[in-house]
């Protein structure tokens, strides 16, 4: 028994050895860096980091900047639409494919392939289609509907929706696959039972199967949320924040302030507000889900 105990503690030590990279990543490259950037947000850093204390001046400048508020609220508009779009469409497609008897692989591939493309490619591709002077608007007009209008890409009020539209195209497939797997893993006996009771198929999905897939939903929300905070590429490639700054997002705003404008202090303040927002949203959800599962 003592020997086994010793061996276990030796193995524990080795486990810690194996965890060194994770520790370095967690404490240095993630949270250490985050702390350093938080520190920069209270310095007078311009295009080079410096260490002169600046109090809350960068935050004040940030909160007085209209551009920031546009970018910040865009993150929620985009995030909300993106999550709703990907999950809504993904679940819908998963159910449709589940109903299929053949050709399942074909449709699955069609819906999933965009995920393999980069968001830069996604943005550039949709840019051509959504551009009113060469894309959908032009095609429909040439087909005879001459006053057809679809100029969201260049409309300050709607540009952010086109970003969600392109991003949903990119992200739906993964969600569909996750839910499809979830649906397939539910007990087939359910179908026999409900058939006897003559319950319509859609009710089986909505009332019986989907409620069992809370864990899948958690995974989906996490994977998509991860994309929302990193929504830099698709914005740069599709609208570059335009027209003006109507479709700007915090990720791009911060990048611009770091490097183009050389206002590292204010950019860092923006980054801190971003991460604080994310933590405020993710942490309670994560906590709640973990508690639920442990119960």
């Amino acid at each position: 028994m003592r020997i086994a105990g010793k061996r276990i503690s030796a193995n524990r030590a080795k486990a810690w050895l194996a965890l060194i990279p994770a520790v370095v990543v967690a404490f240095y490259f993630i949270w250490g860096f985050a702390a350093y950037t938080a520190y920069l947000s209270v310095t007078k850093s311009t295009f080079l980091p410096n260490h002169e204390f600046n109090g809350a001046a960068n935050y004040r400048a940030l909160f007085e900047d209209d551009r920031w508020w546009v970018a910040y609220s865009n993150m929620f508009i985009f995030g909300g639409l993106y999550l709703a779009g990907c999950i809504g469409l993904g679940v819908g497609l998963a159910i449709l494919i589940d109903r299929l008897t053949g050709k399942e692989a074909l449709f699955r591939t069609i819906y999933l392939y965009p995920m393999s493309l980069s968001l830069v490619v996604t943005g550039l591709a949709w840019q051509w289609i959504l551009n009113p002077t060469i894309g959908i608007q032009k095609i429909v007009r040439e087909a005879g509907v001459e006053d057809f209008k679809f100029n969201w890409l260049v409309s300050p009020d709607h540009a952010i929706y086109t970003i969600a539209f392109a991003a949903v195209w990119h992200g739906t497939g993964l969600i569909m696959i996750l839910f499809l797997a979830g649906i397939k893993s539910t007990d087939p006996e359910i179908w026999k039972a409900t058939r006897i009771d003559r319950i319509p198929a859609w009710r089986v999905y909505v009332s019986i199967i989907l409620p069992q897939l809370r864990a899948t939903l958690l995974t989906a929300v996490m994977l998509l949320g991860f994309q929302v905070v990193r929504s830099f590429d698709v914005v740069v490639a599709l609208t570059n924040g335009g027209p003006g700054y109507a479709s700007d997002v915090p990720a791009r705003y911060v990048f611009e302030y770091f490097f183009q404008r050389g206002e590292i202090g204010q950019g860092a303040a923006g980054a801190v507000v971003m991460v604080a927002t994310m933590i405020a949203i993710v942490l309670p959800y994560l906590y709640f889900e973990i508690r639920r599962r442990e119960a």
Partner: peptide, 26 residues
């Protein structure tokens, strides 16, 4: 172990941290 779980949680939550926070220190 509890410590390993904490590291995992830190990494997991860390993957939500916007990459922009890492640029300057990187």
């Amino acid at each position: 172990s509890r410590a390993a779980d904490i590291i995992f949680a830190l990494i997991l939550i860390g993957s939500f941290v916007p990459l922009q926070l890492f640029l300057i220190p990187l």
